[in-house]
């Protein structure tokens, strides 16, 4: 089980790997589309990589609700439980 800090750090690595954004840019209050300029294809890649990294399932219909990094961290945190 990863802590919320670990989830954030892991997510930042996944985002960096996919988009080249610095990991420090991936903050809880950032919006994936507005602030980080992540398109839908990159978002799906990030979701699938996060599923594997944290051993969780993120249903497709849930992805549209993950607007900010914090949304994603919280979802993964709950899904781990």
């Amino acid at each position: 089980m990863a802590s919320k800090d670990e989830i954030l750090a892991g997510l930042a690595e996944i985002v960096n790997e996919e988009t080249g954004l610095e990991t420090e840019a991936v903050q809880l209050d950032k919006s994936f589309t507005e602030d980080l300029d992540i398109d839908s294809i990159s978002m799906m890649t990030i979701v699938v990589n996060a599923e594997e990294k944290f051993d969780v399932t993120i249903p497709d219909e849930e992805v549209k609700n993950l607007k900010t990094v914090e949304d994603a961290v919280n979802f993964i945190d709950n899904a781990q439980a």
């Binding site: 294809i41 890649t45 699938v48 599923e51």
Partner: peptide, 10 residues
């Protein structure tokens, strides 16, 4: 199927 990358077709 879940792991097939979204960029596969392009």
């Amino acid at each position: 199927p879940r792991r097939v990358k979204p960029m596969t077709v392009p």
